[in-house]
Amino acid sequence: MEPRQTGFDAVAQALIDPLRRYLARRTDAATADDVLSETLLVAWRRRDDMPAEPLAWAYAVARNCLANAERSRRRQDRLLVRIWQLARPPEHVPARDDPDPGLAMALARLSSADAELVRLWAWEELAPAEIAQVVGMSANAVSIRLHRARRKLKSLLDEQAEGERP
């Protein structure tokens, strides 16, 4: 018979693709690869803390690892970052291959925390309680903020649509 997978392997293998998608949505490919490895390492070390439904927990680990990677990169390239910030255009400029530049611009006008709630809801398809686990807020607070963030995003998109009408 085929050998069956042992505990951590089976769980971690099922998490890899959701984690890759989570990271691909938030960083460049090279950083995503590094952070994925780091996330798995942390998950392995903390596997006794892993809940029975590990996805939101794994996203939270990835989120922390990504934040650490970005902090580390900022520390290393402090000068470059400063220059980049000075040179940064005030308006969000979507990437050329962005399939929906209007949406990207509208998301950029939300606070980064609110935009992240909307992403976790739409892309990771998490319920408020799961989002709460990822971002470290109460489920109630997430529900309220997510509701407001979606309303604001829709209103920004409506404004864009109005502006585009002849």
Binding site: I16, D17, R20, R21, Y22, A24, R25, D98, P99, D100, L103, A104, V118, R119, W121, A122, W123, R150, L153, K154, L157
Partner: peptide, 17 residues
């Protein structure tokens, strides 16, 4: 809104490993 965001999902073209 969710449909529109899904259509713009940057990970949509990511193939499984």
């Amino acid at each position: 809104l969710r449909d529109r965001m899904r259509r713009a999902d940057p990970a949509a073209s990511l193939r499984p490993l």
